[in-house]
């Protein structure tokens, strides 16, 4: 399928330089790097377990979008609430969800977060300030507005943040939610991850608008555009939006440009994506590019990189072992807990 060019000028998408890197604490930068590595490691492990026949049904890779998830979530406090979507595995890990929780859910274990009642990373945990998504895209936007409304009503200085895709942004709830948030000046941040494809549908079949950020104008709220694979830029832009929300100035729509590097789910070979697009975006891989920048800035070297790799591998092995050791979902409890007592 020919890709029509409908690019906004490159300069409109914020990115960061090596100079910008220096403004940040090395601990923060290494933390971002480490959480991206963790995300990809878990993503790869999920794929491997699928290929070994140990987990069934859909696996949704967030490969290539780790920086967006980790960078945006890093801009939050732990008591802020997120509503991650299916490709925000990195957000869940960054906000404190242990790997075993994700794996237990993928594996349908009796003591996973949904006890086998839902799969993949489709779960929430109030203990971790994570709201579970549903499969109907954009539904999370009004719901997260409700979370933000609870903060506003209780006069808590907390923020609600969620994500949406280029495809999902065409559902009515996107419009109702952002309009609602604008009217009430809710402490809410919405990050639109334009990863170029919604399943097989490219963005030019999703909207005639020149970009997605321009929609914010229709709701009277500010917007920003950022290079989604520039993890530090995502962090900075999100942080500004979060601070604005926390300060009572209302919601922000952030458009982040990125690329879905796998199919919609594991069954999908994504043959409809031109190979040149994959090649072009592979060069912008958020982990490789960030590592290179950290090395240039002498924040990361072989020794530190090796240590992080070893630690992440240890964590992954231990957490996988834990998840696999859990009992399968119990049919005796299939009918339980439909209602709260």
């Amino acid at each position: 399928m020919p890709r029509t060019s409908r690019k906004s000028s490159e300069a409109e998408f914020r990115s960061t330089t090596q100079e910008d890197l220096k403004r940040h604490d090395a601990g923060l930068l290494l933390g971002l790097y480490r959480d991206m590595v963790r995300t990809r490691a878990l993503d790869n492990r999920i794929e491997a377990l699928y290929k070994q026949g140990k987990l069934v049904a859909g696996c949704y890779s967030s490969r290539g979008q780790e920086g967006l998830s980790v960078g945006s979530t890093a801009a939050l406090r732990k008591d802020d609430v997120i509503g991650p979507m299916i490709r925000n595995l990195g957000s869940m890990l960054r906000h404190g969800i242990p790997m075993t929780m994700v794996l237990r859910n993928y594996l349908g274990r009796a003591n996973g977060p949904t006890k086998g009642r839902d799969g993949s990373s489709h779960f929430g945990s109030l203990e971790h300030n994570v709201i579970a998504p549903i499969s109907m895209l954009a539904s999370l936007i009004p719901v997260m507005c409700g979370v933000a409304l609870s903060f506003q009503m209780r006069k808590e200085d907390r923020v609600a943040l969620t994500w949406i895709g280029d495809g999902g942004s065409n559902v009515g709830d996107f419009h109702e939610g952002l309009n609602f948030a604008g009217v009430l000046k809710l402490p809410f941040v919405l990050i639109l991850e334009n990863n170029q494809y919604a399943y097989s549908t490219p963005i030019e079949y999703q909207t005639a608008a020149k970009d997605f950020a321009c929609r914010a104008q229709g709701y009277g709220i500010p917007s920003a555009k950022v290079e989604g694979n520039d993890t530090l830029a995502v962090y900075e832009v999100t942080r500004e939006a979060v601070e604005r929300a926390r300060g009572g100035a209302g919601p922000t729509l952030i458009e982040a440009r990125t690329m879905r590097m796998r199919g919609h789910a594991i069954h999908d070979d994504a043959k409809y994506v031109p190979q040149e697009m994959f090649d072009e975006w592979e060069k912008k891989d958020p982990i490789a590019t960030f590592a290179e920048r950290l090395r240039k800035a002498k924040i990361l070297d072989d020794k530190v990189a090796k240590r992080i790799d070893v630690e992440v591998k240890e964590e992954l092995e231990q957490q996988t072992e834990d998840a696999l050791a859990q009992p399968p979902a119990d049919p005796a409890h299939e009918i339980d807990e439909v209602y709260a007592p």
Partner: peptide, 12 residues
């Protein structure tokens, strides 16, 4: 949005 916001507020 009314019902969605109600869901979110209720969860909180």
């Amino acid at each position: 949005a009314i019902l969605g916001a109600s869901v979110g507020a209720a969860i909180m």
